[in-house]
Design a protein around this nucleic acid. Structure first.
Length: 889
DNA sequence: CTATCAACTTAGAACCGTAGTT
DNA sequence: AACTACGGTTCTAAGTTGATAG
């Protein structure tokens, strides 16, 4: 599994191994034959792992890691100063500034920051992420306010006093007693242990010796919190508004920072308040106390010459840093897991935008390599080297089923897995080639899929499960994410497992959008868009727990549908009652009357009547309550009260009447028909009801479809936003219907730069009868200095270029992104940039220069495309990944 | 090497405000 | 006009990844 193996041709590797050792990690190639698939011929099989040095990465989980690293909250800031920077590029502690840029900070009234378009900038690469950074630090949560003395924890039946610090912790739990966390035994145990610790550190409980969780009754505290919530809710709108305004005002200055002199938003400027750690799934540490973060725990990161924001009264900051190679403003170490928490820039900041853009460009680039990668892993599936089999099989799973990489996890985390950490028990093999995946992935979300796989993948999985492997053992014992990623990088620098998820998600979305017909109302188009979105979410296994109210909601809708159907039937019966002859004329129309059986009808009827009555009662209650708030004399109140009561009584009488007639009608099937209800009117009514049933059913289906699938995660993280923008423009759906305000801000770069023809594909053109796909690359200095003056293909040059034998250099002007076209290259580069000027979309791309580089290499064509933006470059892609491409012609 | 860690992205739950009913 | 279901926002946990320490 050493990387040198990968570099060397297989045969060589094998020979080497065979020489050095009798048993190797090779597979007999015969095992590919159908007759003994999965079985290894030689008894001294390479697969056996009695071979201690036959490189299984490690024996899973058996060795307990000395997890004694014990999340120490370091009290000494200096211990951290000592820590060397972990990035190679940050070798020197000195902040790096681009030579010609002097840090300067713009004054506030130069408010042009709104329109800053980083995507028109030249150089988005490089290790320095900021040149100047100024900010106001962080907001701390309010100090704890002890509960009123009457609100107490009940221990063993008696109210007891607690020192404020312990009371606070008890309160954290009390607030959760009704939730799933509060009922979770692990949560309870962890909470109680930490609670006791805090209690004892603070002098203990004066009234009782608290030792038993089960003797604790938190309900009084819980009730108090509930009451407080209600009081807050009951405040007048003006009061609420005032409070909010005050809060906003005090937070205002923390919301923004100055990044390279431009005002940009800060993301999470509030320090996380203390509380109980809410680990997901079966997390061993769930319920542990997350301690209050002090200013002394916090490291600030800002420009050397930026003013250091004052620490809260009586406090000092833990440390002040000036590291401009990282993108955080403040950090602290959290005590439960010992991990670091950062204060970062907001999603709409340029820095976030840049890395988002790069992410999607990288995924787009993968498109040019995916065929080769697939071809490669297909053949590697039969490799004689165990590591190659595992590598190719893992790649298959990552590519086809969008699995995550699956890094190893420690004992004190929830037991969840991804591709490389899949274990024996996570897959079931059903011959001939069906695999059932059943495991918990990130956030303990279940991944369950029964799928058919490539026969060779099936064979390999069977080999990976072969005895003596048993439950608990890793399926992939010779690879881990770093091995897999290294393998990916041999195709394309920067290619990692997660890029596959991004790529496949965006590709799926584009394919789905391509299937949508441009017709119907805007709302219908949005529904179609969401359906496409949903296929992506399903691919990525983005789930949400079915809300507690879901079941009830569905039932409610179903009941509504039943009720509508019932009313429809009644209308039809009335029609017949008015004109019996109609039944003969149109029997189909009346057939469904028989679909409603007696029992169901009675149920529906009774439910309807009950509901009606309930409505009356509710209204009465509300009216009384409202009366209570009114500021009028007592006498007046009494009078009104009596009036309401009388009114209510009257309504109840009416209802009784309704009950009687309805039941009568049900029994006799004879209906009281008002004069206004003619056959025609009734038929109209039926139509109306039918439409309502249809709509409600659609709504129900949507609700069901969306109940378990979360669309937002894929929309935010996986689907190239330019696809959404393309959809918006092509289908004339306002972008507001597809992106919320925050998403529009986050994806401003996409909204600005994509048009209705935007595609993931990077230009297809035809050169000398060869159809070629052209990819993106990063321009080097020489190329970016080429200037171009026409939008048509300008020149075709033959020149030699670093590493490529022959190069066909095509320079062209392209209008806004590449256009996908199969039959004609020049079309792809075509005209119509005039209308883009009026569209107001993004004029800047007019300036954009496209550079196409086609490398001709023997019968194959090496293809690269450079895209330079006015002398600068947008993409972050290097040369290294160019590869042979056989023409489709 | 291997284990660990910093720094970043991705994730669902909780919370909150409001649009769309009834 | 009140209520409530819902969408949107906030919060913070849980991943990935590549560098580095030992």
């Amino acid at each position: 599994m050493s990387s040198s193996d990968e570099e060397t041709p297989l045969a060589t590797v094998r020979r080497k191994k065979l020489v050095s050792k009798h048993k190797t990690s090779t597979l007999e190639s015969e095992d590919d034959s159908d007759s003994n698939d999965g079985k290894i011929k030689t008894p001294t099989t390479s697969l056996s792992e009695e071979e201690a040095d036959d490189v299984p990465l490690k024996k899973r989980k058996i060795v307990t890691k000395t997890s004694v690293k014990k999340a120490t909250v370091k009290k000494e800031p200096s211990s951290q100063v000592a820590k060397a920077p972990r990035k190679r590029k940050a070798k020197s502690e000195e902040p790096k500034f681009k030579k010609d840029e002097t840090p300067k900070i713009k004054t506030e009234d130069e408010e042009e920051e709104e329109s800053y378009k980083w995507w028109e900038e030249q150089d988005l690469n490089g290790e320095v992420v900021w040149n100047t950074l100024e900010h106001n630090g962080v907001i701390f949560p309010p100090e704890y306010e002890p509960l009123p003395s009457k609100v107490k924890l009940i221990y063993d039946g008696k109210p007891v006093s607690l020192p404020p610090a312990a009371e606070e912790v008890a309160g954290f739990f009390a607030a959760l007693i009704e939730s799933d966390h509060g009922k979770n035994p692990v949560f309870q145990k962890n909470f109680f242990a930490d609670f006791l610790e805090v209690l004892n550190e603070n002098g203990g409980c004066p009234d009782a010796k608290i030792t038993d969780f089960n003797k604790c009754d938190f309900s009084k505290m819980f009730d108090y919190f509930q009451k407080q919530k209600e009081e807050k809710k009951a405040l007048s709108p003006q009061e609420k508004k005032r409070i909010k305004q005050e809060k906003d005002q005090m937070e205002e200055k923390y919301k923004f920072c100055y990044l390279n002199g431009r005002k940009e938003q800060v993301g999470n400027f509030r320090v996380e308040p203390p509380g109980l750690f809410r680990g997901r799934g079966a997390h061993p540490k769930t319920g542990k106390l997350k301690k209050r973060v002090q200013p002394e725990d916090i490291t600030l990161n800002l420009s050397k010459d930026a003013p250091v924001p004052p620490a809260p009264e009586g406090h000092t900051w833990g440390e002040i840093k000036h590291d401009n190679t990282v993108a955080w403003l403040a950090m602290w170490r959290e005590n439960v897991l010992g991990s670091v928490k950062y204060v970062r820039f907001a999603q709409n900041s340029s820095l976030k935008g840049i890395s988002d853009f790069k992410k999607f460009e990288k995924a787009r680039e993968l498109k040019n390599y995916i065929d080769a990668i697939r071809k490669d892993y297909q053949s590697k599936l039969r490799s004689e080297l165990m590591i190659d089999r595992q590598l190719s099989t893992a790649t298959y799973l990552i590519d086809i089923f969008a699995l995550r990489a699956g890094g190893e996890k420690s004992e004190d985390e929830a037991d969840t897995v991804g591709c490389c950490s899949l274990r024996y028990e996570h897959i079931f093999l059903k011959p001939p080639n069906t695999v059932v995946f059943d495991f918990l992935g990130k956030d303990s979300i279940r991944f369950y899929q029964e799928v058919e796989v490539d026969p060779q993948v099936f064979k390999n999985l069977r080999i990976f499960k072969k005895s003596p492997k048993k439950p608990g053992d890793n399926l992939f014992d010779r690879i881990d994410p770093s091995v897999v990623n290294k393998y990916f990088q041999s195709y394309l620098p920067g290619l990692t497992a997660k890029v596959f998820r991004t790529y496949n998600a965006s590709k799926t979305m584009q394919d789905q959008i391509d299937l949508i017909k441009n017709e119907g109302t805007v709302n219908e188009k949005v529904v179609n868009f969401n359906a496409a979105n949903r296929t992506v979410a399903t691919l990525c296994n983005h789930q949400r727990t079915v809300s507690k109210t879901h079941e009830a909601g569905v039932q409610k809708i179903n009941e509504r549908i039943e009720e509508m159907f019932w009313k429809k039937i009644i209308a039809k019966r009335m029609i017949l009652q008015l004109d019996k002859a109609l039944k003969k004329k149109d029997p189909a129309y009346f057939r469904e009357i028989d679909d409603l059986n007696k029992e169901t009808e009675q149920q529906v009827m009774e439910r309807f009547l009950d509901k009606e009555k309930e409505k009356l009662e509710k209204k009465y209650e509300r009216d009384l309550l409202k009366l209570g708030y009114e500021e009028i004399s007592k006498d007046e109140k009494k009078k009104r009260k009596d009036e309401l009561a009388a009114e209510h009584k009257e309504r109840l009488e009416k209802h009784k009447e309704l009950v009687k007639t309805t039941k009568q009608e049900f029994k006799t099937q004879k209906y009281e028909i008002k004069a206004s209800q003619t056959v025609e009117k009734l038929q109209q009514q039926v139509e109306k009801i039918e439409l309502r049933i249809k709509n409600t059913s659609l709504q129900l289906k949507d609700k069901e479809d969306n109940s378990q699938v979360a669309l937002s995660t894929s929309k935010i993280n996986y689907i190239d936003p330019r696809l959404t923008v393309m959809f918006s423009k092509k289908f004339d759906v306002p972008i507001e219907k597809l992106f919320t305000k925050t998403l529009r801000e986050k994806f401003a770069w996409a909204i600005d730069s994509a048009d209705e023809n935007w595609r993931l594909e990077l230009l297809q053109i035809e050169v000398a009868g060869l159809e070629v796909t052209v990819g993106l690359f990063q321009t080097s200095g020489e190329v970016s200095s080429v200037s171009i003056t026409s939008w048509r293909l300008l020149l075709v040059l033959l020149l030699s270029w670093s590493g490529l034998d022959l190069l066909l250099l095509v320079l062209g002007w392209l209008r806004r992104g590449s256009k996908h076209t199969r039959d004609s290259g020049t079309d792809g580069v075509s005209d119509s940039r005039t209308d883009s000027d009026t569209s107001g979309g993004g004029g800047h791309l007019r300036e954009q220069t496209w550079l196409l580089l086609l490398g001709l290499h023997r019968a194959a064509v090496r293809v690269v495309l450079g895209r330079c933006s006015h002398g600068g470059c947008l993409s972050g892609v290097g040369w290294g990944g160019s590869w042979s491409w056989s023409s489709s012609g």
